[in-house]
Structure formats: C-alpha cells, structure tokens
Amino acid sequence: APTVVALYDYTANRSDELTIHRGDIIRVFFKDNEDWWYGSIGKGQEGYFPANHVASE
C-alpha cells in the first residue's frame, strides 16, 4: 500500500476515524473520495482520516 505522512494532528470524531499526529506514516488502503481516505498506522489502528492533513512522502 502507498504511504503518506501526516502534516497536522487530527483527532477522530467517530469510531471509524483514525487519530493521526504530525509526522505519522500512514498506509493508505483506499481513497474513499477527495476528502476522506482510509488507512492504518502501525498495527490495529485503522480508519478514515482527512486527505488534506497528509502529503506524499
């Protein structure tokens, strides 16, 4: 899976979202739409995150 790096912190608001912190490396499983992508950090943490909070490595 491609990876991206978090540019900003984001705290999940729902159970299907992913909390990310600046500098996190996120594996992107799919891009649901322009605004929300689905991916994982490490083991067990996965969910939707805002695409405008990340950039290609």
Rank of each mutant, 00 (worst) to 15 (best):
S56N: 14
N52G: 11
S56F: 11
L7Q: 12
D16H: 10
E34F: 04
N13V: 14
D16S: 14
S56T: 14
V5I: 13
L7T: 07
K43W: 09
A12G: 07
F29Y: 06
G47R: 03
I41E: 02
Q45N: 06
L7V: 08
G44L: 06
A55D: 11
N13T: 13
Y48R: 09
D16F: 07
N33G: 09
V4A: 07
R14N: 09
Y8N: 07
Y38E: 03
V4Q: 04
D32W: 11
N52H: 07
A51I: 05
F29G: 06
K31L: 06
R27V: 07
K43Y: 10
T11L: 08
V54A: 05
R14L: 09
V4H: 10
N33W: 04
T19A: 06
V54P: 05
E34I: 12
A6Q: 05
V54Q: 03
A1L: 15
I41Y: 06
S56R: 15
Y38T: 02
I25A: 07
H53L: 14
T11Q: 10
G47C: 03
D16L: 05
D16V: 07
D24P: 04
W37S: 00
W37L: 07
R14C: 14
V28R: 01
E17Q: 14
K43S: 13
Y38L: 03
Q45E: 06
N33I: 04
Y38R: 00
N13M: 13
G42A: 12
I26V: 09
Y8V: 09
D16G: 12
S15T: 11
S56W: 11
H53M: 12
E46L: 06
F29R: 15
P50K: 04
F30C: 13
G47F: 07
D16E: 15
Y48V: 05
G39R: 02
V4R: 00
W37F: 05
Y10S: 00
Q45L: 10
A51N: 02
P50S: 07
I25R: 12
L7S: 05
S15I: 13
V5N: 04
R27M: 07
I41N: 15
G47A: 02
S56G: 15
F49K: 00
R27D: 14
T3S: 10
S40N: 03
I25L: 13
N52E: 06
G42M: 06
V5S: 05
I41F: 03
Y48D: 01
Y48S: 02
P50G: 00
T11M: 07
H21A: 11
Y8P: 01
Y10N: 03
S56E: 13
A12F: 04
Y8S: 11
T3D: 07
D24Y: 06
D35M: 10
I41M: 12
N13H: 10
F49C: 00
I26D: 01
L7W: 00
S15W: 08
T11G: 06
K31W: 07
I26P: 06
T11D: 09
N33F: 03
S15E: 13
V54H: 04
G23D: 04
G23C: 02
V28M: 02
F49A: 02
V28K: 03
L7R: 09
F30Q: 12
R27W: 09
V5W: 07
D35Y: 10
E46Y: 10
V4E: 02
D35G: 09
T19F: 04
I41G: 07
R22E: 12
D35A: 10
E34M: 11
A55C: 13
T19V: 01
E17L: 05
Y8G: 06
E34Y: 06
W37Q: 04
T19Q: 04
V4P: 00
D16M: 07
D32M: 13
E46A: 08
W36R: 15
I26Y: 06
A1V: 10
I20F: 13
A55E: 14
A1N: 15
E17R: 08
V28S: 02
N13I: 13
V5E: 10
T11H: 14
D9P: 05
V5A: 03
F29W: 14
T11W: 08
V5H: 06
D16A: 09
G23N: 06
G44V: 05
H21T: 12
Y8D: 09
Q45M: 12
W36N: 02
L7D: 02
S40C: 12
Y48M: 03
I41P: 05
D32K: 15
R14V: 06
I20C: 06
G23Y: 02
A55H: 15
L18T: 02
N13D: 12
Y48E: 00
D32T: 13
P2F: 15
T3L: 08
I20R: 02
T19S: 12
D9H: 05
S40P: 06
D9V: 02
R14S: 12
R14M: 09
Y10E: 02
T19G: 02
D9S: 08
Y38F: 14
K31C: 10
N33S: 13
F29K: 15
I20L: 13
K31S: 10
D24I: 05
E57V: 13
F29S: 14
P2Q: 15
H53G: 06
A1T: 15
Q45C: 12
G23A: 02
R22I: 08
T3C: 07
F30N: 15
N33T: 12
I25K: 12
G42P: 06
E46T: 09
V5R: 11
S40R: 11
A6K: 01
Y10T: 04
N13E: 14
H53C: 15
Y10W: 09
Y38H: 04
Y38Q: 03
E57G: 09
L18F: 05
S15C: 08
L18G: 01
Y10R: 09
E34N: 08
D24G: 00
K43T: 13
A55M: 12
H21S: 12
G44M: 11
I26R: 02
Q45P: 08
N52L: 06
H53A: 15
T3W: 06
P2A: 07
H53V: 15
P2T: 10
N52T: 15
V54R: 01
S40G: 13
Y10C: 05
T19L: 00
E57R: 13
T3M: 08
V28T: 05
P50H: 03
I25T: 13
P50E: 07
S56C: 14
S15G: 09
R27H: 13
E57N: 08
F49S: 03
H53E: 00
K31A: 07
V4N: 05
A6N: 03
Q45T: 08
I20G: 03
G47Q: 00
V28C: 04
D9C: 06
Y38I: 04
E17D: 04
Y38P: 01
R22A: 11
P50Y: 00
D16Q: 09
D24Q: 11
F29I: 07
A55I: 08
E46M: 08
Q45I: 10
D24T: 02
D9R: 02
D9T: 07
G39A: 00
D16Y: 10
G47P: 00
A1R: 05
K31D: 08
I25C: 09
R14H: 14
I26S: 00
Y10A: 02
E17G: 06
L18W: 03
Y10V: 02
A12D: 00
A51L: 02
Y8A: 11
I20D: 01
G42K: 12
D35K: 13
H53Q: 06
V54I: 09
D24N: 04
I41C: 11
T11R: 06
V54C: 14
G44P: 05
W37E: 00
D24K: 04
V28A: 00
Q45A: 11
F49Q: 01
D24S: 05
A12V: 05
E17S: 02
N52F: 03
N33K: 09
S56Q: 12
Q45V: 15
E17F: 06
G47M: 03
A51K: 07
P50I: 04
D16K: 10
V28W: 02
A12N: 01
I26L: 05
Y38C: 01
H21D: 01
A1I: 12
